[in-house]
Amino acid sequence: MASCDTCLVRNRAICAALDNREIAALSAMGRRRSVTAGESLIWEDDDSLLVANVIEGVLKMTTSTADGREQIVGVAYPSDFIGRPFSQTSQTSVVALTDARVCVFSRNDFDRFAREHPELEHKLLERTLAELDRTRAWMMLLGRKTASEKIATFLLDMSDRFGNVGCTTLHVPAQRFTLPFSRQQVADLLGLTIETVSRQFTRLKIDRVIGLPSRREVEVIDRHALTELAG
């Protein structure tokens, strides 16, 4: 329970719907786990054995084609929930993009607990619907937006997801953050070539919309201009 009291994402994760007594019961079922960059936590098409809250770090959700090509279909950030409750099989692989810490639960134990706590089930439904909205927005991005709009939208999303949350109602986007993706991964994620991604980043830097202190670091200099470019 002490670890829950000091948890960085306590007020944003799905367990925020629970009271202290329920948090203690859920905590007794789980365990903290550290995952190193590149390490797999869940495997596509395997039995769905665990679910988890992301405490720190960033993880990717991927699917693979028959010939082994990988496609990133989602990204999990601190306070996100990963895994498939109430499902026998994992639909995606989950791999750490950065060193991460997660709070892991047996999927069967979590399913049973969720059925007994409607507030938690309701929070899961809210998260599922929010993920559906993000997926629809991503379909719009991939299908209709230009390369410059895609990059601008992507950077705004990164800024929002890495923003500081002082409480449940106040959100401040991050002005400076480190991308968990390589340029090639950004290209794959947005349906672009790596050359196009590099050109767009360079153009935004020249126009003083963003700064690039290093290859992975991004500083948002002109958020209004970036928002305009995102369409």
Rank of each mutant, 00 (worst) to 15 (best):
E22N: 00
R208W: 00
F177G: 02
D45G: 11
D47R: 02
R144M: 13
K145I: 04
S90T: 11
L132I: 14
R161T: 02
I151Q: 10
L132S: 12
Q184M: 11
A137M: 14
L26W: 03
H122D: 06
M139G: 09
V102R: 01
R32Q: 14
R84M: 08
N53M: 00
T92E: 08
F110C: 11
S64P: 02
V94P: 06
F86W: 13
S34P: 08
D111R: 02
G166E: 06
S64I: 04
T98P: 02
V9E: 06
D133T: 14
L59G: 08
L189E: 09
V95A: 09
F110T: 03
F113L: 05
R115K: 13
E195I: 00
F162W: 03
R183N: 10
A37H: 01
Q200M: 07
L132N: 14
V209T: 13
F113V: 09
L50E: 01
R31Q: 13
D45N: 15
T202F: 04
P78N: 07
M158I: 11
L212A: 12
G163I: 14
E44S: 13
T227A: 10
R215A: 13
E121Q: 05
F162T: 15
L97M: 14
A114I: 03
R101F: 07
L155H: 08
A16S: 14
E121D: 13
R33D: 07
A225T: 12
E70M: 14
E195N: 15
H117M: 03
A16K: 03
K205I: 05
L189K: 07
A174C: 12
F81H: 03
N20H: 02
E39S: 09
A137Q: 15
R134P: 00
C15K: 07
C7D: 11
E121T: 11
R33E: 08
Q184W: 04
